[in-house]
Design a protein around this nucleic acid. Structure first.
Lengths: 227, 227
DNA sequence: TTATAAATATTAGTAATACTAACATTTATA
DNA sequence: TATAAATGTTAGTATTACTAATATTTATAA
């Protein structure tokens, strides 16, 4: 069995590794709770420190600012999805079956058994849906890309692109399709929950089965074969 | 010829209609310049007032906060794309041809002739690519939806969904495909410009022809007919 | 066990942001 | 010319996004 580790998180993302200490793990767990509750704009390190019964300077010793904490969580999520895909596609040869599993894990990386005690995967998933794109839609994205902060997303994307090419080696846009399936999954869930006129899906109480069906149909038609 | 007006912008979005005064139009034009330059996080009304040689309280008489100014610009963009589509698909019967024109206008709503003197469409387009999704990925989205702030996006989406259904009346996800084509266009441009490993496209100096090709292939395969 | 280092907490501070109130001045309109 | 509307000016508050300095607690090593 694979072990889920965070060795893929770039050093530069944090000042002190939050996984190594109790306080660091509390920043992650309470940070997830509070960002999910308040939304990223209203979330501050001051409020987080109160929730943790700690203090602002201690948090600043771990993360330079709240943007890098969000990015850390998003990178964590990408690693978590990568782990789930690796784990669930192990020993599976059929690339179509692999893509089916990938889609399932794209849509709902929360139904799997708990990964790490201090990470609430359901709330992390909510943060990805609501705040995820803010982690890279910033003026600093190019510098952060140079620092290697997005290599998890790229690795995940490359893995999916490879499966796409296994299914159809002549498909001209494997990377675009891979990122599109991932982004579309998150986006259509957001629309279903907040702007339902922009989608045909119904999502009731976090039941994402219709989303899986949609993404499978998208993938099937794009690759001209039943996924 | 159609006239591009802003009657579709909900009253609640602003405190005083910026189109009615010189100062209001300056808020829009300088706001576009400055958000594009600084990014939305670093953009403040204080900086904007200095750029305009005006003052903060005057800006606050038009917009409650910078989030609503961004949303105003995004709604403007949706209306602008809607206008372009209406204008360019006028008297065209063939729904496939209509969808082709829609895709062209999704990808690049800037190559058309200038709409309104005080709006720099190229910079507005850059803002949409970089900051657009922040206009609705907030905790206030449900309230703002109730206020009708997203009716422009819904109307645009419905128009495209109708064309999709003209092409294939049995297609099960017309609204999802419509929103997906729009979001994918913006997203793949962002990736091409900032995280190129996540796409197969090359975008050099704002030449989006490859993006149009990609979206056309996506649409063609989804609808099982050459668009 | 004690010495020492490392981590955390406390206090206090600054500059910037996100506003609001009160009032003065300019500009438009009746 | 009177009046209202719009804009400008000044001044203020609460919050945010940090940082510095120092005290205290906790872990580890001699």
């Amino acid at each position: 069995m694979l072990i889920f580790t965070e060795i893929n998180i770039s050093k530069g993302l944090y000042l002190r590794d939050p996984l190594q200490t109790e306080l660091g793990r509390k920043i992650i767990s309470c940070g997830i709770e509070l960002i999910e509750e308040l939304g990223f704009e209203k979330f501050t390190f001051g409020k987080l420190s109160k929730k943790m019964n700690s203090n602002e300077p201690s948090i600043y010793r771990y993360f330079e600012n709240k943007h890098l904490l969000l990015l850390y969580l998003v990178v964590w999520y990408w690693n978590w999805v990568m782990y789930l895909i690796d784990y669930n596609t192990k020993n599976i040869e059929d690339p179509k079956k692999k893509l089916r599993i990938i889609i399932q894990n794209f849509v709902d990386a929360t139904i799997e058994n708990p990964g790490v005690a201090f990470v609430n995967e359901k709330k992390l998933h909510s943060i990805i849906i609501m705040e995820g794109s803010k982690a890279y839609h910033t003026k600093s994205v190019d510098n952060e890309n140079k620092e290697g902060f997005f290599k998890s997303y790229k690795a995940l994307n490359q893995k999916v692109a490879d499966v796409i090419l296994e299914i159809d080696p002549s498909f001209p846009y494997p990377h675009s399709l891979a990122s599109n399936l991932f982004e579309t999954a998150n986006n259509q869930i957001f629309f279903a929950e907040h702007l339902p006129k922009l989608t045909d899906l119904k999502v009731k109480s976090k039941n994402y089965s219709e989303v899986v069906e949609l993404i499978r149909l998208f993938a099937s038609r794009m690759l001209k074969t039943e996924i």
